[in-house]
Design a protein around this nucleic acid. Structure first.
Lengths: 160, 160
DNA sequence: GAACAATATTTGCATTTGCAAATGAAAGTC
DNA sequence: GACTTTCATTTGCAAATGCAAATATTGTTC
């Protein structure tokens, strides 16, 4: 007998949402939203990214990210520069202000993680992370069957 | 040296977003969104829920859920009835149509989970689920310090 | 039992989101 | 070198979201 509340997607989503919501509230005083933090932390780890790369890294949809980068630029947190050699791409970077802000926030994120995994051993934590990464990869397997479902959907829509 | 991409929140969010996005696309042909599926699956597990309970169970914010239930009612998937004995609460239930639809979708969700954890042993999977549930609980510990951050925020706002 | 506090849900409003189409720029192709 | 194709990003538009305020109902206190 299936139970939503014992399913992996449910448990994952629940903990993800909760953590995000708590972290959002925690950093609201810095005038940053959670997506902004994600962008800054991603750029802190790897600067000079193109929009598409950053979208992949942050799991933020590209059009959403494009606009988000716009508001972050207005806030002086990031820079967006069209490249001279390939002007259809754009290089996104942290500004000094963005860098120093994210360096204030990262310790808070670290603290959150520490609290979250307080009950587990170091090995338990690395195993968990490996597991999560492996699941992410396994999900790729689903693409073909989803593409087929979508193709059928498009076909029946053309009909109508 | 901190790395966003090796942090627990990042890994959790990433796999959650991916799975959600794939599942959304998979079920789009049934004219259901992911949040709708979540509501139906929650009601399938436990019917006759009040809005607040359902919000807690699905991790959907209450005002969002209120409106979502509205559109689902219009689609004939759920019923919403004010109680006679306590008319400030509302009882939400699946309709026959909603029930049969969710019973079509659950096997798809089960399949997704199967694929996601294909690499792991049964024990590995139960352990993972237990871990996720424990982390969820641990996060509660953070509430007090967040409340304090929010209080300070409110105080400085009153100033301004 | 009238006034006030507490609880549950809904709504107003501004912002965010995401798909699909549009734009801008570089790469073939002939 | 004008042409279509492909690639990367942005924008139009309608829908979804979330906070805070409003509403509706019950509970409490005097």
């Amino acid at each position: 007998m299936y139970q939503l509340t014992n399913s992996l997607p449910y448990l994952l989503n629940r903990v993800g949402v909760r953590m995000g919501e708590l972290f959002s509230r925690r950093i609201a005083g810095y005038d940053v939203t959670l997506p902004m933090y994600r962008v800054m932390a991603a750029l802190w780890e790897q600067g000079d990214q193109r929009l598409g790369d950053l979208a992949g890294m942050t799991s933020i949809e590209m059009s959403t990210l494009s606009r988000l980068i716009g508001t972050m630029k207005r806030k002086g947190l990031v820079s967006r520069t069209r490249l001279k050699d390939n002007a259809r791409t754009v290089a996104i970077n942290l500004t000094a202000k963005g860098k120093s802000l994210v360096e204030e926030l990262i310790p808070i994120a670290v603290h959150f993680e520490t609290v979250a995994v307080r009950e587990f051993t170091t090995k338990g934590v690395t195993d968990l992370k490996t597991t999560l990464a492996e699941i992410y990869v396994s999900l790729g397997t689903l693409e073909p069957e989803i593409a087929e479902a979508e193709a059928q959907r498009r076909a029946s829509k053309r009909q109508a």
